[in-house]
Amino acid sequence: MNLDPRRPALCVAQATVVGADGSATTVARAMPAAPFGTPAWQLPVVAGYLGRLRRAGDAPSIGSFVTYLDSRAGGSRVPAPHRPYAGMPWHDTRATCVIDVLLTSRGSMGWPAVSLVVLQQEVGRRDCSWSRVERHRGYLAVARHTADEIAAERDRLADRLRTTDDDNVRQVHALATEVTTWADKLHRAARGGHTLARAADVRKGLQVH
């Protein structure tokens, strides 16, 4: 997919993976922001990658992150950024959505340690333009924020269906409903793992004393 200069708004996904030796490697991918280049649709992609690492018991890597994005480039109903991007997304006036994730293998209950920053802004950054930056640390916070974002998108589309009979809106709403169900399931799994990890820490503390 070529980045069309007539549609300059971009969604950029950037990942930095810190290895066991402390070295860090960064990669970024981009795609047109319309129609799925928003946090509501792309946070589930990032969360899906985290869930895949947990299921496989793998440490995060740049290679597996890029492969995961590429696998969602064409056939997936929700495409992911997959076009190589060599810019600096935080300073790119075309980037209306930037999802920046930092990953290390030092997590708990099979989840990688993760720190997430999400930027939304108007293209061009003109005077009085708006922007929003959110930060979330830990797999549980990322899973919860993902579930909240896609649920809000589902509800927004449901509101549109009350005033329109558009088949496209109905189809996207159905897709948002499916993704919301999946995100809720992932969040419950993350919350259950977090509870077990805290209980294990308490038991360990009691044994020490």
Rank of each mutant, 00 (worst) to 15 (best):
L119P: 04
W41C: 08
D92S: 05
L140Q: 01
D4P: 06
D92W: 03
V133W: 12
H136N: 08
T195V: 14
H91I: 02
R29M: 11
A86I: 06
A30G: 06
A197V: 10
H173P: 02
Y85C: 08
A9Y: 03
E149Q: 13
Y139L: 00
A34W: 08
I150M: 05
I62V: 15
A189S: 12
P81L: 09
Y85W: 10
A189Q: 13
K204E: 14
L206P: 00
P32K: 00
R29P: 04
C128V: 10
P5H: 07
R156S: 14
A200H: 13
D167C: 02
G48W: 05
A24G: 08
T177Y: 04
V12A: 04
H173E: 14
L175T: 02
R126C: 09
Q207V: 08
A151R: 14
M31Y: 04
V208F: 09
R156T: 13
R7A: 14
Y68Q: 03
L186D: 04
V66C: 09
R203N: 09
G124W: 08
T93G: 05
R52T: 11
V27L: 13
R54L: 03
A143D: 03
P84A: 11
Q171G: 07
V78H: 07
V114A: 10
P44V: 03
S64G: 02
A86F: 12
H173V: 04
L43H: 05
V66A: 10
Y68W: 14
T146A: 01
R7E: 12
P35C: 10
M88P: 00
V179H: 03
H91L: 13
A152E: 12
L140N: 00
N2A: 13
C97W: 04
A59Q: 11
P8L: 08
Q42N: 08
A34T: 11
I150E: 07
E178A: 06
W41G: 07
Q121C: 10
L119Q: 08
R7Q: 14
R170K: 09
Q121K: 12
V18H: 07
R72A: 05
A199P: 00
R144S: 09
T181Q: 13
L102H: 15
S23H: 12
G48D: 04
M88H: 13
G57S: 11
G63E: 15
G74T: 15
F36N: 06
R94L: 02
R54V: 03
T93A: 14
R52P: 00
A113C: 02
D58C: 03
